[in-house]
């Protein structure tokens, strides 16, 4: 998978692409940590347009990132998940802490 970012005003866009599962979970965790410490922002938006697959390992990665950002009072939003990921996020309840934009 690939993780990139860009900021626009107070918003930090994090672009996820490829597949988010156990094989990339350590990479995803550390890259998100990196991005969140190196940038300035008030809001974070996960752009999932190019993310093709995610399972509950990905939910775990996103949840632990959410907990860190919550301490800094930074709201996180989810943008354009595909159907497979949208269903997973609904069933896991992740939308309650990371609403769709």
């Amino acid at each position: 998978m690939e993780i990139t970012c860009s900021s626009k005003k107070d918003n930090l866009f994090i672009f996820l692409s490829g597949e988010l599962d156990q094989s990339v979970s350590a990479f995803a965790r550390s890259t998100l940590e990196d991005i969140s410490t190196k940038n300035k922002y008030k809001y974070i938006i996960f752009d999932m347009k190019k993310l093709s697959f995610m399972d509950s390992t990905g939910i775990g990665v996103l949840l632990s990132f959410y907990k860190k950002m919550k301490q800094k009072n930074v709201p996180i939003y989810i943008s354009e998940p595909n159907n497979q990921i949208d269903k997973l996020i609904r069933i896991s309840g992740l939308y309650t802490v990371m609403p769709p934009v």
Binding site: D55, S56, T57, I59, G60, V61, L63, S64, L88, I91, S92
Partner: peptide, 13 residues
């Protein structure tokens, strides 16, 4: 390791 505990829930659903 912060797993979600949802693996079996997803399999079931």
């Amino acid at each position: 390791e912060e797993r979600s505990g949802l693996g079996f829930t997803i399999m079931k659903t």
